[in-house]
Simulated assay, not measured.
Amino acid sequence: MALAAALPGLEIVGSEVVKLRAPQPGTLLGTGKLEELGARLKAADVSLVLVDGPVTPVQQRNLEKEWGVKLLDRTGLILEIFADRAATREGVLQVELAALSYQRTRLVRAWTHLERQRGGLGFVGGPGETQIEADRRAIDDAIIRIRRQLEKVVKTRALHRASRAKVPFPVVALVGYTNAGKSTLFNRLTGANVLAKDMLFATLDPTMRGVTLTTGQKVILSDTVGFISDLPHQLVAAFRATLEEVLSADLILHVRDISHAQSDEQAEDVEAILHELGVTDETPRLEIWNKMDLLPDAARGPLETLAARREDVLTLSAWTGEGMDLLVEAITEALDGARSSETLSLDFSEGKQHAWLHEQRVVTDEKQTESGWLVDVLWTKAQARRYRDL
């Protein structure tokens, strides 16, 4: 329901959970259920049916023909939402790439009227098969073109990251399940005006702002696309680039909608995706239990007690501002606590690395030797990783 509500212009007239012993290969549903739902759809004058799960091209074609409606499965619906939300050039290209990959698997739908024209024993394709292959080649060409464009965008983003790496400010990344309140928290911390609405996927493109916290600490704050369970594999691949900022973060804020009935399950999904992206447990993180203002008093007390027992959990409401002061203090402490001391031995030939360390302002002491420098640094693990990648 939440996914459907996230697509503008849709009026939801009803929903139903249909239990299947086994999906029918041709129609997904059994004959009886097919007729029952068809009658209800006709009576309610429904023009679009959403299925929260995968539907094969053949099933989609047959259901649309049987009911006289347009049908979208979970992947198709998410693609529609993403297409509506994408704002930056990269976001638009990522959506187009995912949509083309999805459409390529469903070409059979458009050419069923030619299927009977295939001749012989099927070893030689007829006109229908030829048209499908032509469409497939056209889509493949479009995918190649978009990937080339994306490569240029990714290079540009890499240059931006490289320039940010020269700025001695740590990166704090907001992650969380979609609609957890990340953009509202981002706006509260930065004073920015990022789209923040009570809907899924309100943010699709990574947004970054430099901000000075009330403690005087300067950080770069990154708002990311919301995570979701069972994200279609086309989208996991296509939107990986929008989550790259998380990999280089000095601190991760995992924002949770603690008022949601499935908050624990959502948190597990987020942690699983972070692990899949390659985010290690070494990266410091804080868990933010957001939307405390939406909880009844009877539920707030036990949660606040539970959070107080954990050093990595804070309770707040980004909407009302409650708990924000404690969050700012916790961010500062986490960033300071994440720093470690190390002594590096550099040759004179490593002038680039030497300059980078000073640009990062992590050098605490330095001695020149016959062949180079002995440099004492105080840095975060993310800075250490970036240094070794130079």
Rank of each mutant, 00 (worst) to 15 (best):
G14W: 06
D198C: 12
S345W: 02
P170Y: 06
L150R: 08
V219W: 05
R137Q: 14
L243A: 05
L63I: 12
R116T: 12
G68Q: 08
S263A: 15
L63Q: 03
M208C: 12
R161T: 01
A237S: 12
R89P: 11
A307G: 03
E322F: 07
L20N: 07
V55Q: 08
T27C: 03
S47A: 12
S263F: 14
G210T: 13
P127I: 05
L235T: 02
G321K: 06
A5P: 04
A267F: 12
P25F: 05
V362K: 03
G226Y: 07
D257R: 04
E16F: 05
A298K: 09
A298F: 12
D264R: 00
M1Y: 03
A110R: 11
R161E: 11
R145S: 12
T75I: 01
M292D: 02
K166E: 15
A4L: 03
E35S: 11
P23M: 04
T105P: 05
T332N: 05
E36K: 05
V211H: 02
T214A: 15
L231T: 15
G323C: 02
W111P: 04
H113N: 03
D205E: 15
D140P: 10
Q353F: 01
S101R: 15
A238N: 10
D325P: 03
E271M: 09
L316I: 09
V69Q: 13
K42C: 08
